[in-house]
Amino acid sequence: MTAFAGCPGDTGAGRRAGDAPPVITDLIDEETVQSIAEEAWSALVGEDELLVPLPGGSPEDALSAWVEIVGPWTGTVVLTCARSTAEELSGCLLRNHAPRVLDREDIEDALGELANVVGGNVKAVLPGPCVLGLPEVGSAPEAPLPADVCRVDLLWRGQSLTISVQGAAGALPDPYENNQNEVPL
């Protein structure tokens, strides 16, 4: 896994209470996110399964799974791909243990578990303490602050797959907050 300066072991204790919360790009980079995803793919999807760092465009029938991280940095880790890609991933995860017919619940559960594994390992390199939420599946939550997003576009078996580590709405301070008591000129 790619290491990055300052994060592992950073308890956040050195920051002052009034400090602005960090943005995700200060805490983790694309290479680290991709490295985490590659490790998850290799172990769970298949030893020879490759994730190629190329954008594949937005799938029409997109399905997203995400987990929330709450801590000094608060946001979500979102995994998005086409539903057909999620179905193929589910089959790979289960291999010879797959039921004869994969139902919708299994497909969403599999994508949720991949998001959970990626999210758990993202959480491990963020300043702590952090709490990891349970996986959710559906339409991708919006990233309210473009500056607080670390996004990796990948191809798996030629199919688009996006991992976005994105801050939650309200996680950053209102830039006008300190001006509210100013006397107008």
């Binding site: 998850a40 172990a43 030893e47 999210g119 758990g120 959480k123 491990a124 702590g128 303490p129 990891l132």
Partner: peptide, 27 residues
């Protein structure tokens, strides 16, 4: 068997009475 991989979490689990700890993803 969990995606919680921080050292502190592992220590908590072992202190509570778990014998072993496997971090997801696993083979």
């Amino acid at each position: 068997v969990t995606s919680e991989s921080e050292h502190g979490q592992i220590v908590r689990a072992l202190a509570a009475g778990a014998h072993e700890y496997v971090i997801k993803p696993f083979t």
